[in-house]
Design a protein around this nucleic acid. Structure first.
Length: 274
DNA sequence: AAACAATCCAACCGCTTGTAT
DNA sequence: AATACAAGCGGTTGGATTGTT
């Protein structure tokens, strides 16, 4: 027998999420945590499938999600990581705390691909595009090459180094363990500690601007009809989300500051692997 | 101002992977 | 070992927005 569909699609809502729905999902998760996505919509009173709820939470609602444009250094990192990992967006996203695989994938497809083409590089192989070859047009139109066919560490297996390779010292520091997601306990703990500290500092900085923001926070809380009176956490979350939505891009403390710290973290992580 | 094209991105779909039984 | 299920992942789609004629 085949597997069951992830949800009974009859009577389920699809398409863009409403504020009301967001509110219900946030309230539920803040109060109950995440145990089983399949049961969450029912328990939270949502006419959505679990998969949809999961996606909405991960890509948009979770408190630590980072929104706003990508910086130049971030783009460079994405390019470097992509040259080694191919279209493994979740792996790439794991190097950018707060960024989602979906966001990175979208950014790659809409911006970075074009940028590379303009630079005369094939976004798939990261090799210079050779105009005179038969397949040149294919590369320009769209790639037929299966990105997943590029094996780790051998994405440019011939002797020719890619143009980007010269700038890849930091990425070269990746060990195989890193590529397959293994770190020592100590490394993981350090990384987590740093990131938590980072989030802490950020939240403190956010406090001031959040107070100013409070009066703007009408949208979500007005739609509140749920019974979550005690939800201080939820309130904080909503304010944070609201703040991010308003500020996405150029923020108060500015995401650039955070970017810089993340950058440090990224290279700290790689440095430790040297 | 209207029509059309291009771009962006949230959300969906279906396949794969991991885990429990 | 086989099966069933939940979650994760990457590709794709479609609607909204923005730019151009």
């Amino acid at each position: 027998m085949g597997r069951q569909p992830c949800c009974d699609k009859v009577g389920l809502k699809r398409g863009p999420w409403t504020i009301e729905e967001d509110h219900k999902l946030i309230s539920f998760i803040m109060n109950n945590g995440i145990h089983c996505w399949r049961t969450i919509p029912k328990l939270a009173g949502l006419l959505r499938c679990g998969k949809s709820c999961r996606l909405r939470w991960i890509n948009y609602l979770r408190p630590d999600v980072k929104r706003g444009g990508f910086t130049e250094p971030e783009e460079d990192q994405i390019i470097q990581l992509h040259s080694r990992l191919g279209n493994r967006w979740s792996k790439i996203a794991s190097h950018f705390p707060g960024r989602t695989d979906n966001e990175i994938k979208n950014h790659w497809n809409t911006r970075i691909k074009k940028k590379l083409k303009l630079l005369g590089l094939d976004p798939v192989t990261h090799q210079p595009i050779q105009e005179d070859e038969n397949n040149a047009q294919e590369i320009v139109n769209e790639t037929d090459v299966d990105p997943n066919s590029i094996t780790e560490g051998s994405s440019h297996s011939d002797d020719k180094p890619t143009v980007l390779e010269a700038d890849q010292d930091k990425v070269e520091a990746f060990s195989m363990e890193d590529e397959i997601g293994l770190m020592t306990f100590e490394e993981t703990a350090n990384l987590l500690e740093n990131f938590e500290w980072l989030c802490g500092s950020f939240n403190e900085d956010q406090e001031g601007s959040r107070r100013n923001q409070q009066e703007m926070d009408t949208h979500v809380s007005q739609s509140s009809s749920s019974s979550v009176e005690d939800s201080h956490l939820l309130q904080q979350h909503q304010q944070q989300q609201q703040q991010q939505r308003v500020d996405s891009g150029e923020s108060v403390v500015s995401w650039d500051g955070l970017d810089y710290l993340e950058q440090e973290l990224f290279f700290l992580e790689n440095g430790e692997l040297l």
